[in-house]
Design a protein around this nucleic acid. Structure first.
Lengths: 357, 357
DNA sequence: CTGAAAGCGCTTACAG
DNA sequence: CTGAAAGCGCTTACAG
């Protein structure tokens, strides 16, 4: 079966109709019998306007269906109630959920949201400066090397905030940023597996924001720390080449060949999904033979069979808080609130259990 | 475990630094020893500029790091190389993939992308007119009643395109739109199940764009048509209340109780995931006792156990084509190409098979 | 081929 | 409390 798609380019209702000019403040002024400056005062909630004048203007605004032109406002005032989020991805769970959080907060604050996707092909400096030229603020999702590089290159004179992986202890991101404690979460997840009786835990890594310069992201560091503090020499981490289930499956096939391996911590739930599938193909039971723990708590993870044990991350909260950080820079006097996002949480489901259980 | 998140509001590198004004065309003109109109001609690739003058101006642009202010350009020219996509969701597979397709096409064309999320709480007319006031075009994702309503209310004088569910035969959407043939795809998927020997096929519906006025979306219609043309009276469809796995699970529990049911077509893969889980809990084997077919081919569906039989939809292609439709309206002379997006495809995997097989 | 003028729709001082 | 002026950074005719 191959069903062809359809299109309807009927332009009767398209661009044919005469684009009647929208009402401007001068139109409103004329209708209300005032100068256009007064209209400006009214729409900006300026105090010094006589009650009756204000009413006349408001009536004219209503009847003409006037809406202030955001472009003209931005040009004249230098204020842009908008932000553009820079991200290398919009569909992976962590990115999409973060974006969703940013969007909610932006909408609540009356900000328009722009999205610019970062690609290795595009010149980063051009991308950054064109994003900056749009006015408004920059919000970068710095979960990967591309995002981290973008954050590094954000022009110093433009308001910018970020959500990032947990930075190394004692270091801070180049710009105001929020993060969840990936490191501690990975440590705790690993410790949980150890307590179950597993002699060691293998780690299947996601690519991280630190890239090739230093292949150990915070999740890997937390995993390593847990093993070391239990006196266990960490095995070499696996993966690091991609985020999706296919990578998890490929790595999982290799992992499945080693009967000594009884516990695998995955850098995200997609990787874990692939590992589950590989283990199944190899005839190894989960959690009977091997325990699998994911990261992020993607929407489908609770419905897998076995349901996936994973670390829940509040990406939406991170997105909201990053917006608050940016909002504070954009509107002086609007102080960023204390971050209220919840932490991380280990959600124990069915894919993990006692060794040999 | 509950690990608290962190924030870094260090503003040293934030808004403290003096926001040095960016170079304007007047600055460039002064540096090049020409009038600023000439600079305008150069940056707009106007032909009538002497070779040497052009070089001088370009050199000045380089050395000053000049970039044209998009806001001023938009205000003066009335042209906005931007569009805003209106959607009720950004994370569900179909929406996210469509958005991704739009983004790719927009980026390739040099358009800035805005996103406005539609909610039942916000006043639709206000939302629409504020989106329209931003300038540029509107691209609405009309998979649900909210999106469909937005498309209906798009101001007639603003360029607009949409991606929608397949409209009823003979009817066309209110504005130029693209769609895949959901109806035919559902018919084919149902026919496939019937050929396997199932005596009937049950349908678990997604909410559709037609909403309550007419509860039968194109996928349901295709399913119904397939049954009827095989001389089978369609059972009542189930679901219709939500898109996610939880809904699928709840409905699945009910479906699992009826031993007569051997084949279930689901309106999307998330619903199917929930059904799979419910069937497992009820002790019914897939595909041994019950065949399950999904819709959309979400990224994780191929890695489930059993891997999900589903209908692949080219949402990215739909997004790209919808952009082309809008692009054609925004830039006269830029004719929308023939839609090239692939159709739908039934992907047979492990969750479906012969009845009693 | 190039410059001087007017204007896009708004705001921000400055007068009264 | 309200109006007249200048300007945000660009473009589009209009002159030369």
């Amino acid at each position: 079966m191959d069903v062809t798609g359809h299109t309807n380019s009927d332009s009767r209702s398209g661009s044919a109709r005469e684009p009647r000019r929208a009402a401007s403040i001068r139109d409103v002024a004329r209708a209300a019998g005032v100068s256009y400056q007064t209209v400006s005062r009214v729409i900006n909630g300026h105090p010094n306007v006589r009650e009756e004048t204000r009413h006349r203007v408001e009536a004219a605004i209503q009847s003409l269906g006037f809406r202030r032109n955001p472009t003209a406002f931005a040009l004249a005032s230098g204020v842009t109630r908008s932000l553009t989020v820079l991200t290398s991805n919009t569909t992976l769970h962590g990115y999409a959920a973060t974006l969703q959080g940013v969007e909610e907060a932006a909408r609540a604050a009356g900000y328009a949201l722009g999205v610019k996707v970062l690609t290795p092909e595009d010149d980063l400096d051009r991308t950054m400066s064109s994003a900056a030229a749009e006015g408004g603020g920059l919000l970068v999702i710095g979960f990967d090397p591309l995002g981290a590089a973008a954050l590094e290159r954000a022009p110093a004179d433009v308001p910018c905030a970020a959500v990032v992986e947990a930075p190394p202890p004692g270091r801070t991101p180049p710009r105001p940023a929020v993060w969840a404690d990936d490191r501690e979460a990975a440590r705790a997840a690993t410790a949980y597996l150890l307590e179950l009786g597993h002699r060691t835990v293998h780690y299947l890594a996601i690519p991280t924001s630190v890239g090739a310069r230093r292949p150990e992201g915070p999740r890997a560091q937390g995993w390593r720390a847990a093993l070391e503090s239990a006196g266990i020499t960490p095995p070499d981490p696996h993966g690091g080449t991609g985020w999706d289930a296919q990578v998890g499956y490929d790595e999982g096939r290799r992992l499945a060949e080693d009967p000594e391996i009884t516990a695998i911590l995955c850098g995200n739930d997609d990787l874990a999904l692939g590992v589950l599938r590989a283990l199944h193909h190899a005839g190894r039971a989960v959690p009977g033979d091997v325990s699998v723990v994911g990261f992020d708590d993607a929407p489908h993870s609770a419905f897998l069979t076995p349901a996936l044990t994973t670390v829940r991350m509040d990406f939406q909260g991170l997105g909201r808080d990053a917006f608050a950080l940016l909002h504070g820079q954009l509107e002086s006097g609007h102080l960023p609130p204390e971050p209220t996002f919840a932490g991380t949480d280990l959600i124990v489901r069915e894919s993990s259990g006692p060794v040999g259980g």
